[in-house]
Write a protein that binds this DNA or RNA. Structure first.
Lengths: 121, 121, 121, 121
DNA sequence: GTGGTCTAGACCACT
DNA sequence: GTGGTCTAGACCACG
């Protein structure tokens, strides 16, 4: 109980990423109920307001739905989830490539390094 | 005049990255003199305090040296630069892989996407 | 079975509006019996407590009467219904005009838009 | 000093509407600087966090831009503002018509009432 | 018991 | 001095 958060990224952002990841991965299924704000807050070891903000942003991203008095649910719209997956991948790769270029590496060089590292796991 | 900065990364950090990149790439040669704080601040369109901080941090990373009354210079220590290059690459790839895993993508899938994107430019 | 509710207005309020509308429109006649709380709750797909609250508020507005053991009935007082109709219209228009002004639109501009939209249906 | 807020609408929402209205109306010009979060909070008589939330949502709506350490500014993109104006009008009219129909009034009847009221001002 | 709003106040990052 | 994050805790609206 209690999640380890990185120091240089907002906690609420890390929580959003974590939940988004679980949905993309299928750990959280379409239509599945999320823990209540308060439950999750305790589990993650953060303040309930922080968790509330997380859920609110997830809803604005249209990847969860909130039903008053009933809780939050993963969207049932599987196409939306598939789209989200692509968006995340795109975004991940784009910002990575921006950095790669900013530092003057070639894509080939990086991919090589990447595969070496990826294989070891 | 004026650099385009990304909105969600500190400006001073982006400037550090930019200069570091130029050194790694060789655009800035070992021992070469950097522009003065004021010059560079004007050129980049940022506050002089911000630029001052950038130079200070570069010096702490030991990739530039400040000679009193003469300005800042890229370190002449080429081994240090080569090391820096490797550090940056390592760090870039590591944090990327962390994200890739966090979101449940496979390295293979990402590399494929990466190559598609990298080729087009 | 099951009514589509707007997400940002209380369900009980939407139900009150819906029944009030039916009475104003004459779909529900003066003196006519309303469905039982349970029946209507099932039909609308809401919690019975919610429906209970709806009926209670309708009675407080004096547009329905509850006869013990027999159920709820639309008031027989037709003058009351006519008055209700005017009240609703007044209230609707007033709050609309408040918004129109708050956002700096002119009444003429809005009416024009309104007629365009109203005609198409 | 201190704004009068309606009791049945979130304060932060009313503040968003108020600022949006000022922008649409031109009271706040494109590119103009908004008061700082703290200043406005004092002026409106609300907590600084509430105001912060308001500014954040305005930014998400892309009608203001935040520059770190410098404050918030109305977007300079006039097309965006024009679009916003249309969106607001559309939304206002749509929700109004929904209510009109829900209560069984005809558009003609309402427009007539609206013009009578609008003329008196 | 659920989510939503608001306040109060601390502390940090950035320019 | 600016915006951004986080905590703590109260109170309300809803089902």
């Amino acid at each position: 109980m209690g999640i380890d958060f990185l120091p240089d990224k907002p906690i609420y952002q890390q929580l959003i990423d974590r939940i988004t990841g679980a949905i993309i991965r299928g750990t959280l299924q379409p239509g599945e109920k999320l823990p209540s704000v308060r439950e999750y807050a305790v589990e993650a070891g953060v303040n309930a307001n922080t968790m509330q903000r997380v859920y609110k942003e997830l809803e604005q991203m249209e990847i969860t739905e909130t039903r008053r008095g009933q809780g939050s649910f993963v969207t049932g719209d599987e196409a939306r989830i598939a789209m989200l997956r692509d968006e995340m991948k795109e975004q991940l790769v784009t910002s990575f490539l921006q950095n790669v270029e900013a530092f003057g590496f070639t894509t080939a060089e990086i991919v090589e390094h990447l595969q070496k590292r990826g294989d070891k796991r």
